[in-house]
Design a protein around this nucleic acid. Structure first.
Length: 216
DNA sequence: CGTTCGATGCACT
DNA sequence: GTGCATCGAACGT
């Protein structure tokens, strides 16, 4: 079942917690690619310095202020597309960033897209990407699923891009600081499936940093 | 193993 | 002109 708008129209941390284990699906030209969400981050409100709404409403972040259940896609570092699910009622700017998936459907298409020369790169390496790494990291998963800026603003409740509840037990979550940001690292708003091989690793500037983990 | 660095495009000041 | 919610190649150990 496709998650209804009411799922997204709730406190963002609740949505983030429950998105883990759901399946993100993208249908394109008869090709279906999908993956089980194994890692997310919450970005909540203008008071969150890492949220794109921190500077107030702009043309770029307008979707965050809009209705819940829509996709917020943007390009960062000039290379990577990142996909979020907008949460909370209108005028409450917040979203959940999808950071990693366990590949489910369309692995062949994922491999093809991932091995395409990445934007800004001469070519991808000849070594095959392990299946478990195809959607590891927010930039990699959008490439694998073929999600681009065009898909920003799509209705996750009624479009070729959607999130499904496929049943099964709720996974055991770990929570820790969001990664890849320079502000707002005090908030433990990153959630992932403990020990899952498709969860992205933080790039640390110093070695041996341990991540604080809390069971949900 | 570990860390550093450049690519790249867009929104915003 | 500046700064990024990244990635992987290229180093150093």
């Amino acid at each position: 079942m496709i998650l209804p708008r009411s799922f997204y129209d709730r406190p963002t941390l609740d949505v983030a917690r429950e998105l883990v284990g759901k399946v993100l699906v993208h249908r394109t030209r008869g090709v279906v690619t999908s993956g089980r969400i194994v890692e997310v981050e919450a970005y909540i409100g203008e008071s969150d310095p890492a949220c794109h709404a921190a500077p107030g409403r702009t043309r770029r972040n307008a979707p965050l202020y809009g209705a819940p259940g829509f996709a917020y896609v943007y390009l960062n570092y000039g290379i990577h597309h990142l996909v979020n699910a907008v949460t909370e009622p209108v005028d409450h700017p917040a979203a959940v960033l999808i950071r990693a998936l366990e590949p489910v459907d369309g692995l062949r298409a994922m491999r093809r897209r991932r091995h395409l020369p990445a934007k800004g790169r001469r070519r991808t390496e000849g070594v095959a990407i392990p299946d478990v790494d195809l959607c590891k990291g927010p930039g990699n998963l959008t490439q694998a699923l073929g999600i681009h800026l065009i898909h920003g603003g799509l209705d996750l409740c009624d479009s070729p891009l959607f999130i499904e509840d496929v049943g099964g037990d709720a996974p055991t979550l770990s929570w820790g600081p969001r990664i890849g940001i320079r502000v707002g690292t005090d908030r433990l708003w990153r959630a992932w499936i403990a020990g899952h091989p498709s969860v992205s690793a933080a790039r640390q500037s110093s070695s041996g940093r341990s991540v604080l983990s809390l069971n949900a």
